[in-house]
Amino acid sequence: MENLEIQGESGVYFIPTVKLRADTGVCEISGESYLEDTSEFYNAITNWLEQYIREIKKPLTFNFRLTYFNTSSSRSILDVLRVLKKFQEQGGKLTVNWYYPEDDESIAEEAEDYMKDTGLAINMFSFEPEE
């Protein structure tokens, strides 16, 4: 199974950087998320995860390190977390880490709300955002 890597960029839209590694089971999405077609972008991630769950089934760590995402992206992030929850329910070993900028408590609140929505345990860490 191949890795999925998307290099983020900030143009007309804000595309987050995505690194999904089938070999290590470590996945990360970082940067800012405001997209032309939000569903299409995140479907690529959920499809990759579905395949990993079917074929690899090894322990999976998913790191969220977003500094901004719009409400449309927040729906899609919920979809990603739901797939991760399904993996865990099927016996998969899962770690979800949520890194939020130390000056933005709203992104920390999002993690709390996602925990309520999905029943997943999400580890929360603050970080100092770059200039």
Binding site: Y34, Y68, N70, T71, D103, D104, S106
Partner: peptide, 12 residues
């Protein structure tokens, strides 16, 4: 902190 709030609200 405030700038980000204004930005995020403006975008929505």
């Amino acid at each position: 902190r405030t700038g980000k709030k204004v930005f995020a609200i403006f975008m929505e």
